[in-house]
Structure formats: C-alpha cells, structure tokens
Amino acid sequence: MSGERFTFTVDGVRVEAEPGQTVIEACDAAGIYIPRLCHHPELPPVGHCRVCTCIIDGRPTSACVMPAAKGMVVENDTPALTAERRTLIEMLFAEGNHFCQFCEASGDCELQALGYLFGMVAPAFPHLWPKRPVDASHPDIYIDHNRCILCSRCVRASRTLDGKAVFGFEGRGIDMHLAVAGGHLDESAIAAADKAVEMCPVGCIVVKRTGYRTPYGRRRYDAAPIGSDITAKRLGAKD
C-alpha cells in the first residue's frame, strides 16, 4: 500500500513518511519522540489523553490521529507544549487516586514517567478523591479502578487483539469509567496473558503475584526518561 514517500518537518527537523502513517508513527520511525499516553503502536489510535498534542500547521492537533502530510510543519518539543502536557498529566493525577509509593507499576508506569519527563512536582489542582472499586475477583488478575486513566488501551486490545470485548466504558464526563463485561473480572473471559492486561500503561490492571519483582534501579523508567528508546534510534543513526 506504500505510495510515494514524502517529508514534513518537526521542530525544524525533516522527517520522512509514507502515505497512511500518522504523525506519531512517522516520528517514531524517525526517532523523534512525541510524548503520548493512550496511544499504542499495536492499537488503533483514539485520541483520549491529548498528551501528544502538537502544533501542526499552526493548530493544536493530536499527533496520534493526524495523518502525516507532505510539507506539514509540526511543533513538538516547545516550552509551551511541555507546560500544556504537564497540565494534562496533573489533571489525570487529580482525577484518580494515584499512590505511587505502593503501586506495583511504579517505575514502569507511563503516567508517572510522563510526570517525571514534564517535571511535575505536585498536582496544581486539588485531588478529586473519587470513590472507585477494586475488583480482585479473578484468580490471576485484579483491577484497581483508582488507578485507571481511561486510556482505553484495554478496551481496544481486548477487542482487536484478544477478540474478547472484556472491557468497555460507561457513563459520561467526569463519571465515565471502565466497565468489565459481566460486572466482575471472574465473570469475564479475561486471562493473564491477554494483551488487554499487558498494555495497561499504569497499575490499574495487574497480574497477581508478579508485583515488585524488578529491583529498584532496574525498572523501565528508573535510569532514563520515557521516550529514550525512540530518541535512541535517531541518536544512534547519527553516530
């Protein structure tokens, strides 16, 4: 399906892309990291988190859903966008009940890693302290809804990769929440090996008896910031 390759620029750097690629896909391939939270390369993009908002041809646009086009001018790494992305992360910290200090995902958590990347020291907003349940009914998996950021990775993965439709959303606005088919995990078709479990970016969907196995210092984001794997491609190519 590949047609004529074309180029566009990101912060002044020329990026090559092929038809059908989104801005974020083309940038990933080129070793330019656009911060993101709900996006996952194996899933259809849906634009929930807005962390990948860039200024594209003068307009704020979500890079995960925007098709790349010839001659596009993209601003990505600017102080103004970093401030805006930090505000989005602060909103998510205020919305849920996030306790990094005892969370199994700490060190591997993409929400936390983005907080580090953007230099979030304290949420700028009062916590909303919602009342959310923990579902530990399944023998191998539990869900702590306090940590859900409504990224829909599990919803999408369960449908498109696991073929199960275990997850969905319910409600709207600030009351929107993740729902499990059958009401509880043990009544759903979920299994610990499901992609829906693996792709949770935070500590919301957790495989039991696997927590805290990686020592402090060797976890995904202990030494280097999130996105380093992507930027390494470009830096590596230069060497």
Partner: peptide, 21 residues
C-alpha cells in the same frame, strides 16, 4: 459543560470539573 462533557478526552472530562471548582 461539566455535565455534558462526553468524557472521551482528558482536558474536557477533567478540566470542565476543575473549572467549576
């Protein structure tokens, strides 16, 4: 707006409630 936000995206879902506060 907080009551009518669909909830899909972070800034509208959370932000409209924070504006209210």
């Amino acid at each position: 707006f907080a009551g009518e936000s669909c909830g899909w995206c972070t800034p509208c879902r959370v932000g409209t409630t924070l504006l209210k506060d």
